[in-house]
């Protein structure tokens, strides 16, 4: 049988402005393209992350007040950036799923969720490990920390909700709505340190001014942030590829089982499909 018939919802040729988005909607094309791109994302991600962290851990100078505890920043700041950026990507996938019914957006959102939750957990854990020796407290309920904790719970809620329905499409719909509603937390996280007084320090790197950080600390931070971002993208790509192939596998097995039930043919193939399922 032809593999292209196995994809559940059939991709209709879209018209107008949606055409560009839907060029990458075909799962077969996504698999080919992502397979080609993946090594060029994963390898630089690994190399840059290691370079940034080794530089930050061993060669960057200690801070005049924080001492060596400043080195936690090289993990914490990229994790915080990825927690927010990952959620923005989740919201973008949800938007294109709800509005344009993009066939890959639901799968991508399903796979971004746990990775983003991991980044948020890393951000919270490393922040806590920095806060204890520097501030004198593992945790405080200021606006920045609380809004990031809310982000973590939004991720967990999305993970649970998308997997709570028997019908994956309904789970994806519910998850997409949650993701879009939760996106209101992103500007709150970003501006919490400016809108309210918090224990957490305001942004060091801003769009408007020069970073208030020594260049010898900024470079390793930049490398590890770039590397971890590429690593995040690579992990999401790999998981989405796996999800597309798993869906194709389920569809193939279901189609095959239906055919066999109808024709009562091919003992051999039946054993194969049964053994794998």
């Amino acid at each position: 049988m032809d593999a292209s018939t196995a994809f559940a919802p059939p991709v209709k040729p879209p018209s107008g402005g949606g055409r560009n988005l839907h060029r990458f909607a075909n799962p077969g094309r996504f698999l080919r393209l992502s397979g080609r791109v993946l090594p060029f994302v994963a390898l630089p991600g690994l190399v840059l992350t290691l370079a940034g962290l080794v530089w930050g851990l061993l060669f960057a100078p200690a801070d005049w007040q924080q001492g060596d505890a400043v080195r936690i920043m090289y993990v914490h700041v990229p994790a915080a950036w990825l927690a927010s950026a990952g959620y923005a990507a989740l919201a973008a996938c949800s938007l294109s799923s709800l509005v344009w019914r993009h066939p890959l957006a639901d799968l991508a959102a399903l796979e971004i969720g746990p990775v983003g939750a991991g980044a948020t957990a890393l951000c919270l854990a490393t922040g806590s490990l920095w806060g204890k020796p520097m501030w004198g407290a593992w945790w405080v309920w200021d606006a920045r920390l609380t809004s990031v904790l809310v982000l973590f719970f939004l991720y967990l809620g999305h993970i649970a909700l998308t997997r709570a329905f028997d019908d994956p499409a309904r789970g994806a719909r519910a998850g997409a709505i949650l993701a879009l509603v939760g996106a209101v937390d992103l500007p709150i996280i970003k501006f919490s340190v400016d809108w309210w007084n918090t224990l957490h320090q305001p942004a060091t790197i801003t769009l408007t001014g020069a970073p208030t950080m020594y260049l010898g600390m900024l470079w390793p931070l930049f490398l590890s942030a770039l590397g971890m971002t590429l690593g995040f993208v690579a992990i999401v790509l790999a998981r989405t590829r796996a999800a597309v192939m798993e869906r194709r596998l389920r569809t193939l097995l279901a189609t095959r089982a239906r055919q066999e039930a109808g024709q009562e043919a091919g003992q051999e193939a039946g054993q194969e499909a049964g053994g794998i399922a």
Binding site: L57, V75, H76, T126, L129, P133
Partner: peptide, 16 residues
Amino acid sequence: THLTYIIAAYGVFAVI
């Protein structure tokens, strides 16, 4: 300084 905190932070990163 703060070696245990640094090791713990990088360790959490490595595990995740």
